[in-house]
Design a protein around this nucleic acid. Structure first.
Lengths: 193, 193
DNA sequence: TACATTTGCCAACAAGCGTTGACCAACAAC
DNA sequence: GTTGTTGGTCAACGCTTGTTGGCAAATGTA
């Protein structure tokens, strides 16, 4: 709950309301996907009328776009040991996924919605490819290698945080890193087959 | 289009109509996901009235369940060389995904819908775990290893067939196999870290 | 004081959804 | 022929959705 006005007290600022709407939207989109996350439910969570959502974000698509602006916060590759980059990347993504609903929301919607798919693609190619290009042997291979890394990262995220496969959920953070790090490392730096 | 009656000719058998409905449903579920694949649209594709869908499949959930009965057709592990199992599995899944809409449909819906997620889980654990158990060192590890294999297979399927990441789509079948096979092989047979 | 702006609620709209039940026409059996 | 069964349409229901416009009240500004 984000309502804090004590019934009859001073109105919130528009900024606070906008933020409350975004919080509720992220949670709903993450939990339900695009279609089933209704504006009415989001407004209810934010403690306001549905029409306020329209006033501030225009329509549902605008709300979704505002709620899923994402920064993967990838580390600069030159700050890490070259041979530990796989482990570092896997650990980073596990952390990101566990403390931010937006990633799950984006993934859920990306799989359902065409606009969402483009958005996932933009985030990953825009932020992943540069990092990969900084560490792989031939920068021309960066898109391909980034796609491979993404496939493994996204696959584990879906198994663990979306589908909730029991064995994937039960694995400890360290086990996931130990298993996936060599895979990612190979996709990053091994010579092309 | 699955309508073939020449306007006023003999009626179809119920079996033909049921099959036409299932075909249309698979296509729509694969293309649009659960919520946006409407019964009306499926019926239109099948060339019949929406009420026929209800008569034959009860309700939308029943239709979805009928449309996504899946056999992964996994090969028996003892028919393959132990060290080529990774490549064989990856190749098998690429083939399956490319000639069967149902897999994409199930994946799309599994990510959106709770019932769909359970279904994905049931298919993968029910059919993948036994195969993995037949080839990995300690059968107790089979669920964990199956989850790892699934994470890489599902991740590539999502990147290539759902999100349509450009580099993932552009890769040739042989390249995908060459990159992913060692990963899958390691998840299957390498000692636990 | 008076006025303008901003925050918010309310009631309604049109459209689309899953679902239902009544009705029709073709066939098969008697 | 009559009578059941089967494949199919039609029109409507109750409901939810995104979206809109008008109105109340609190705040700022003169």
């Amino acid at each position: 709950m984000t309502t804090e006005a004590p019934a009859g007290g001073p109105r919130r600022t528009s900024g606070a309301t906008k933020a409350a709407i975004l919080d509720a939207a992220r949670e709903r989109f993450a939990a339900d996907g695009y279609e089933r996350a209704t504006i009415r439910a989001i407004a209810r969570d934010a403690g306001i009328d549905p029409s306020m959502v329209m006033r501030y974000y225009g329509n549902k698509e605008g709300l979704f776009a505002a709620a899923t602006e994402i920064d993967l916060r990838l580390p600069r590759p030159d700050t890490l040991p070259a041979d530990g980059l796989g482990a570092a990347l896997v650990a980073h993504f596990l952390d990101r996924w566990e403390d931010d609903d937006v990633l799950t929301a984006l993934l859920r919607v990306g799989v359902t919605n065409a606009a969402g798919a483009e958005r996932v693609q933009a985030v990953f190619t825009g932020q992943m490819v540069p990092v990969v290009a900084g560490v792989c042997p031939d920068p021309d291979d960066a898109p391909c290698r980034a796609a491979l890394v993404s496939s493994q990262i996204l696959g584990m995220a879906i198994a663990r945080y979306v589908l909730r496969f029991q064995p994937a959920v039960a694995m400890s953070r360290e086990d996931v890193i130990a298993w996936l790090a060599p895979t990612v490392q190979r996709y990053l730096t091994a010579p092309c087959p």
